[in-house]
Nucleic acid binder design. Structure first.
Length: 550
RNA sequence: GGCCUGUUGGUGAAGUGGCUUAACACACUGCCCUCUCAAGGCAGCAUUCACGGAUUCGAAUUCCGUACAGGCUACCA
């Protein structure tokens, strides 16, 4: 075809496209950002389901853009109507809000480079395709699905590469007359890339995470525009990330094999290449088979994003976990910098795991504990209240009614270099602090206790009534307990008791245990004296009474 | 079948040719501290980096083969 013929063809195929490439190039000028600023994007397709892997890549997008003073935008990749799920887009947006992984630009977030929804950019894609046709780099292909299936079968038998390329690209060099004939017959067509690649040649692609990779050149006439006129992922990626001036494409590594195509597309279109960072998928060792597999919605509850909210895992703690996956040196840094948080850490691609990262629930839980231990009692109170409002209204009400006490309880052993590390989820607070709220403290609290022992009520009563002084410090208090112990035939220290067990009825610890059980209903608790101090003598006596009548 | 990528303890992993008798963290076990628990301290937990060969004075680190695993090979993303 001559150039005139190609122009005629382009106008025949896209009569309604009246804008030019230059129009869009001018409309979306380069961003006014510094050299090192990274522009990243999260491009979900609206299937309605967001999983941990999606969150991980969005998290990386956010973190890299933020720390370089760049931009992180949300682009809805809805070129395939079959994948659309009602409410899917809204769900994506609300999950990003819930998890505090917020783009500063994009669909529903505003910005100068929209529309940020691919289904609204059809005209843009077609403008660029029209231009490619004029340049002889793309062509309409009228092959039917049956024809293509046959070719595929043949290729499978011959064990050659599958796809439309070389001799298989039948419509590559159709004359203008032949195209017109097809068009007159009303034949359906797609637009294919006229790939200039040579599979015998090798190209090298550098990935920010995986490093250098070598591939044969891409030589398949990949579909650019489907028969309904919408673009395939590959073409939309090239156009959008160019026009939106993405600098770093961070995405799942299922895309690495498309790299030769994408590089070629950028070249053909005359775009400045983008950098790629392919993230390894989150995997899991299957309990049954022992094999590594991708995490699955059905088998792995924490894969779905609802799990975290329902179980009361703090969003910030999840961020911590995502950060440890994102950069392998994050965890060590975080543990040794107790006064800092995620935004102080400098993420880098070369500290990113290359192989698959396996989900480690124990580690997540531990990170949660560390997270809680670094929060003040008041912060834990407020966050737990917010969570309870959503999941346990009754408890939320009680938390509000007992605010002052609750904060005091949650603050026990919080100061000092080694704060308590006992809760990992909001959902655990109710049980872990079951003794904190009077109206929740019932006789049943005693039967839940794993101790079968019968404690000496009179002894405890005597102690509380006649010896307990709540107006002192911990050390003074404990010395008092020691004195009380020895004057009642108990050893003042467990060591003494161990030496001569026959000389004593027991030791201080036994007395403390009796008090603890009567006051808290548990064998284990944070510092007993702190708890008693908050409760006060009256409430302590009431609990002993409750114990007596249990 | 073809093309890519990966494989270090129970787990996440550090490691880029000698500083590694393999860091750190989680989990687990034991001891210590201690009124219980949590925390903390100490110790134990891979003589070896999937396997086989090559290069080198020297390899977890480079190269080649094998095995296994994952991804792609759609008018899905």
């Amino acid at each position: 075809m001559t150039e005139e013929e190609r122009i005629e063809l382009a106008n025949l195929l896209f009569p309604n496209i009246d804008k030019t490439r230059d129009y869009y190039e001018d409309k979306y000028p380069k961003r006014n950002l510094s050299e090192e600023a990274m522009v990243t994007r999260y491009g979900p397709s609206p299937t309605g389901f967001v999983h941990l892997g999606n969150l991980l890549s969005a998290f990386a997008d956010m973190v890299y853009a933020k720390q370089t003073g760049g931009s992180f935008f949300l682009r809805i990749e809805d070129t395939d109507q079959k994948r659309m799920v009602d409410g899917g887009i809204d769900n994506i947006v609300s999950v990003l809000h819930d998890f505090d992984i917020l783009p500063n630009e994009g669909y529903s977030f505003g910005g100068e480079y929209g529309p940020y929804q691919q289904s609204e950019r059809t005209e843009i894609y077609q403008t660029y395709v029209k231009d490619l046709i004029v340049k002889g780099l793309a062509y309409p292909c009228f092959m039917t699905e049956e024809e293509i299936a046959e070719i595929k079968e043949e290729q499978e038998i011959n064990k050659t590469k599958i796809g439309i390329y070389g001799v298989y690209a039948q419509d590559r060099d159709l004359s203008l007359e032949e195209v017109k004939e097809h068009l007159n017959n009303g034949d359906e067509y797609v637009i294919r890339l006229k790939s200039p690649g040579d599979a015998k040649k090798e190209i090298e692609v550098v990935d920010c995470i995986k490093g250098k990779m070598k591939f044969p050149e891409h030589d398949v006439d990949t579909i650019l525009l489907k028969k309904d006129g919408t673009p395939t992922y590959h073409f939309a990626h090239a156009i959008d990330d160019h026009l939106m001036h993405t600098t770093h494409v961070i995405r799942g590594d299922e895309w690495v094999s498309s790299l030769p195509l994408h590089v070629q597309l950028f070249e053909i279109l005359g775009f400045e290449p983008v950098k790629y960072a392919h993230i390894a998928p989150i995997t899991i060792k299957d309990q049954e088979t022992g094999n590594i597999r991708k995490i699955s919605k059905r088998k792995d509850p924490w894969f779905g994003v609802k799990y975290y909210d329902e179980n009361g895992i703090p969003i910030e703690a999840l961020h911590l976990y995502l950060a440890t996956i994102t950069n392998t040196n994050f965890e060590e840094w975080y543990l040794s910098n107790s006064d800092k948080d995620i935004t102080d850490f400098e993420f880098s691609f070369d500290k990113q795991a290359i192989g698959g990262t396996s989900f480690d629930e124990a580690k997540l839980i531990n990170l949660c504990k560390t997270y809680f231990s670094r929060k003040s009692g008041e912060e834990v109170y407020n966050e737990t209240l917010n969570w309870a409002k959503k999941h346990d209204e009754e408890y939320a009400k009680l938390l509000e009614d007992n605010k002052d006490d609750m904060i005091k309880f949650l603050s026990i052993e919080k100061d000092g270099p080694r704060p308590r590390k006992d809760i990992s989820k909001y959902s655990e607070v109710k049980e872990e602090f079951s003794y904190a709220i009077d109206s929740l403290f019932k006789k049943e609290n005693y039967s839940k206790n794993e101790s079968e022992k019968e404690y000496d009520i009179d002894l405890v009563l005597d102690y509380v009534n006649n010896h307990l002084n709540l107006d002192c410090d911990n050390e003074e208090w404990f010395n008092g307990v020691r004195e009380f112990a020895s004057s009642n035939g108990y050893a003042a220290s467990p060591k003494d008791y161990k030496k001569n067990p026959d000389d004593y009825k027991g030791h201080v610890g036994d007395i403390c245990e009796a008090i603890r059980v009567m006051v808290t209903g548990r064998l284990k608790s944070p510092d007993l004296f702190s708890i008693m101090k908050i409760l006060g003598k009256d409430r302590i006596l009431k609990r002993i009474d409750l114990y007596k009548n249990r």
